Simulated assay, not measured.
Amino acid sequence: MATYTMIIGIRLVLIALRKKIVRKKIKNTGLLGFSGGLFDAFGGGGWGPIVTSTLLAKGRKSSYVVGTVSLAEFFVTLAASATFFASLGVSHWYIVVGLIFGGSIAAPLAARLAGKLPQKTAILAVAFLVIVFSIRMLFKIF
């Protein structure tokens, strides 16, 4: 997954450096959502890097992408967490409640801030973060 996100990060930099960002039709959104959700639930992360970077690479506006992905990620995380806690139980419930409240506050703020950024700046910021975290994951592997 780190290699995939690294490639997407580099692609985002190239897209941001173009004079005009071309909006392409997104095909197989169900497969994109399934892949992002699977990696998020199975590997402990993946929804944000996979779905956000793919939608931005297809030319979608950053405010639309961040808001949509944040809302969908809430439901993906809720489903994965409910399954996890139903299987293992919750011994540190106060940590879970804190994460839920923090995420509920942070997601709309992130969407609002992303809407204020120029499109190219937002794409470069996402590309930078995706590349940095991909390099970090690759260094942990090797």
Results as ranks from 00 to 15, higher is better:
62 S>R: 00
19 K>Y: 13
48 G>N: 07
71 L>A: 14
96 V>P: 02
49 P>R: 01
105 I>R: 15
50 I>N: 09
71 L>R: 10
81 S>G: 15
21 I>W: 08
84 F>I: 05
141 I>Y: 13
39 F>S: 10
32 L>Q: 05
67 G>I: 01
59 G>F: 01
2 A>V: 02
9 G>H: 04
74 F>Q: 07
45 G>R: 04
73 E>K: 09
11 R>A: 14
127 A>N: 04
61 K>C: 03
64 Y>G: 04
126 V>T: 06
20 K>Q: 10
107 A>N: 05
61 K>V: 01
22 V>L: 05
116 K>Q: 08
37 G>Q: 02
2 A>H: 09
39 F>W: 13
40 D>C: 13
18 R>S: 12
71 L>N: 09
58 K>N: 11
136 R>V: 12
50 I>K: 10
121 T>M: 09
66 V>E: 08
56 L>T: 01
17 L>E: 14
100 I>W: 05
13 V>A: 08
94 Y>I: 10
112 R>N: 10
74 F>C: 13
23 R>L: 04
102 G>P: 00
139 F>K: 07
42 F>L: 14
103 G>Q: 02
63 S>Y: 04
52 T>S: 09
50 I>E: 11
34 F>Y: 09
40 D>F: 13
126 V>F: 15
111 A>M: 12
118 P>K: 06
111 A>K: 14
4 Y>W: 13
125 A>G: 12
113 L>K: 15
109 L>Q: 15
24 K>S: 09
